[in-house]
């Protein structure tokens, strides 16, 4: 830093904190996926296929998650159905 820098605007955006926040979110998300069994994406696909036969749904509106609590696994299925016309 030279003498000229003192005349410049000293306010700097703390981009490091943005980086940390983004990393914490993506890393937590990816760790969650890491513990899921391999069959989960295909399971999700087949569930979507079956439901699509009867109802028009958006792929984004289907969430499949597997939770492990002690010695019990919970398969959670969350589907948002479209509003009735």
């Amino acid at each position: 830093m030279s003498i000229f820098d003192y005349f410049r605007d000293r306010k700097k955006p703390a981009t490091a904190s943005i980086a940390k926040e983004r990393l914490q979110i993506i890393v937590a998300h990816e760790r969650g996926q890491r513990n899921q069994p391999d069959y989960l994406p295909q399971l999700q696909q087949e569930i979507i296929d079956v439901i699509s036969k009867y109802v028009q749904i958006d792929r984004e509106q289907v969430h499949v998650a597997l939770d492990n609590q002690d010695d019990c696994s919970i398969l959670e299925l969350n589907i948002t159905l479209p509003e009735r016309p």
């Binding site: 700097k12 703390a14 490091a16 980086a19």
Partner: peptide, 12 residues
């Protein structure tokens, strides 16, 4: 504030 600090990376 332009680079992640040691403790930032340790936290993550």
């Amino acid at each position: 504030g332009e680079m992640l600090s040691v403790s930032d990376v340790e936290d993550i």
